[in-house]
């Protein structure tokens, strides 16, 4: 006769009721899979927005005849702004060269100029956390404070629109994500409740022979946690297979898509484990109150 630890007892349940245990893991897996798919869409949408946000740039045009010392001093000052990732000083000659290269349709117009009409400028790229209208405007205002700065542009309308899209995406993502999570919690809770109810008689017998509530809870909690971990792994596997299939079907465009990193995958397993544990705790608690 072998002594049964709570862990061994929990593992025996999987052997005794393989179908029900398998169904529980599958239902946890599928519930987390729906969350996973939504999270993948949200992740890639956010990534696409971040790529767009990389274009947020503040350009300050410098008056002609500004002394070189003033430019060097300003370069040092601007680089010290907390929002600044990269600062490039573009001379009028560089600006003209670039215009000739990039604006092909005006190539002729730029060829025979006697005087370079383009001003020098500071081109400021912002750090990722500061690529929004508020910070872009703050940097622009600071740039306007330099006496030699003639004009400052940062595509105000465009940045504000990007901000709105980001805010809306975050709100919609949060609401839908919470709804998916709530549905998953309910489905997983019901699944666990069924497994507990199936063993109601066993719980009643345990109490009858003097088992404490903690003794009874132990194997159920371990079982719930194990199911949560397995469900989480299953969900990641299904999400990955779906991701791969989608990526293959979209060809070139699909190569820019990203899958979860280790942190997000761990979070999914932790979420499954937490729901498994919580569901077991609540269901067994309810059962213990009833017997």
């Amino acid at each position: 006769m072998r002594y049964r630890t709570p862990f061994r007892e929990a593992m025996l349940t999987f052997r005794r009721t393989p179908v029900l245990s398998g169904l529980s893991v599958a239902s946890i897996g599928f519930s987390l899979f729906t969350i996973g798919l939504f999270a993948l869409v949200a992740l890639n949408f956010r990534k696409a927005l971040d790529v767009l946000a990389e274009r947020v740039e503040v350009v300050a045009f410098v008056m002609r005849g500004t002394p070189t010392e003033a430019i060097s001093q300003a370069t040092q000052d601007i680089t010290a702004f907390p929002e600044v990732l990269e600062l490039v000083y573009v001379t009028p000659e560089q600006a003209l060269g670039r215009a000739r290269r990039e604006l092909v349709e005006f190539k002729e117009a730029y060829r025979d100029l006697e005087v370079n009409p383009l001003p020098a400028s500071f081109e400021i790229r912002l750090k990722p956390d500061f690529r929004d209208a508020v910070h872009a405007q703050a940097v622009a205002e600071r740039m306007r404070g330099f006496p030699f700065v003639e004009d400052v542009r940062y595509g105000q309308d465009w940045v504000e629109r990007l901000d709105k899209i980001r805010t809306m995406a975050a709100a919609v993502g949060l609401v839908i994500g919470l709804a998916f999570a709530a549905v998953a919690i309910v489905i997983i809770g019901v699944t666990i409740r069924i497994t507990v109810l199936q063993r109601a008689r066993e719980i009643a017998i345990m109490r009858l022979v003097g088992a404490t509530n903690n003794y009874i809870r132990g194997p159920f909690l371990i079982e719930g946690a194990v199911k949560g971990v397995l469900g989480g792994i299953l969900a990641i596997l299904m999400s990955w297979l779906t991701f791969e299939a989608f990526q293959r079907s979209t060809g070139e465009a699909g190569t820019t898509l990203v899958f979860f990193g280790p942190l997000q995958m761990s979070l999914m397993v932790i979420f499954g484990t937490t729901i498994g544990l919580g569901g077991s705790l609540l269901s067994v608690g309810r059962q213990l109150r009833n017997v």
Binding site: M1, R4, R16, R201, L208, V209, Y215
Partner: peptide
């Protein structure tokens, strides 16, 4: 009120296990 998936000795031993008896 016996546990069907436990043997006779496990059903009886179970009453000792829950009391925390030394294995």
């Amino acid at each position: 009120r016996l546990l069907e998936y436990r043997t006779v000795e496990e059903n009886v031993g179970f009453a000792l296990e829950v009391t925390g008896a030394r294995p």
